[in-house]
């Protein structure tokens, strides 16, 4: 079974085609990079796949469920980390974990055991009862990612998870992503950092609402005879006629 299938998936706001008939597939266990300039339609596409936004036309399934009719089943199967920081600043680390795990219906013992394992892994044991608002941004992001996959989803959507974070923390963040992928969680990630694109198994590049290229990083570099993903991206993104955001 494919983890994600999209066929001519579109979203139109008024007369504006935010996402213009995109088609692609994501294999289970893959780290799939979803690239594009600001305003290319990445977040809109991702919101449709998460069941947050209804597609205007086209077809798509996520974890085998239809995006029109089975949104609640999709929500059970996925994790999601949005651009906006989504933990509660006025709750402690453990309280945030407990709340999100609780609304996914996870049993109390599971929450307890996994929380202490997670805190050990993130070296946050001493901060467990501190309010999230007092943590530095890098820690918050790592925590938000860990909360997004706490309920052990099949697939996690990450919308620019490393925005505004220093290179060391970004590297640590990607170690978490790799660890999640090793556990069998499919990762669907958008980013603006081209070094991060190199970490992905496959990468798609969106320009003006369409997917212009989709291949492994090595394949893309060969096809566009570019030295780096950065060059690939620049070649494609220069074609854009839409202004950013």
């Amino acid at each position: 079974m494919k983890m994600i299938t999209a066929k001519n998936l579109s979203k139109v706001f008024g007369g504006f085609k935010a996402v213009d008939a995109i088609s692609f597939e994501v294999e289970p266990g893959e780290i799939f990079g979803f690239l594009g300039a600001n305003g290319a339609g990445k977040t809109t596409a991702m919101r449709m796949l998460c069941g947050l936004s209804r597609p205007s036309s086209g077809e798509a399934t996520v974890a085998g469920f239809d995006v029109y009719r089975q949104q609640e089943q999709i929500k059970r199967a996925i994790g999601y980390m949005s651009q906006k920081f989504s933990l509660y600043d006025d709750l402690t680390i453990t309280e945030n974990i407990r709340f999100y795990a609780g609304i996914y219906g996870k049993p109390g013992r599971f929450i307890k055991e996994k929380t202490s394992a997670l805190l050990r892994e993130l070296h946050l044991e001493t901060e467990a009862d501190k309010r999230v608002g007092s943590l530095p941004l890098g820690w918050k992001q790592k925590l938000a990612f860990s909360v997004a996959i706490f309920h052990e989803p099949q697939l996690v959507f990450l919308d620019e998870p490393t925005g505004g974070v220093d290179p060391i923390t970004r590297r640590e963040f990607w170690n978490l992503i790799y660890a999640a992928a090793e556990k069998g969680i499919t990762v669907f990630v958008t980013t603006h950092y081209m070094d991060e694109a190199e970490y992905c198994n496959r990468v798609s590049i969106m320009v003006d609402g369409r997917i212009e290229a989709l291949d492994t990083p090595a394949g893309l570099k060969q096809h566009y005879s570019a030295a780096s993903m950065n060059d690939v991206f620049l070649q494609l993104a220069r074609k854009a006629t839409r202004s950013a955001d």
Binding site: L52, K75, F85, S86, L87, Y100, Y104, G105
Partner: peptide, 13 residues
């Protein structure tokens, strides 16, 4: 405003 509603909406709540 703080964006947590989206995180809630993406759960099976």
């Amino acid at each position: 405003e703080i964006g947590t509603i989206e995180q809630i909406n993406v759960t099976p709540i």
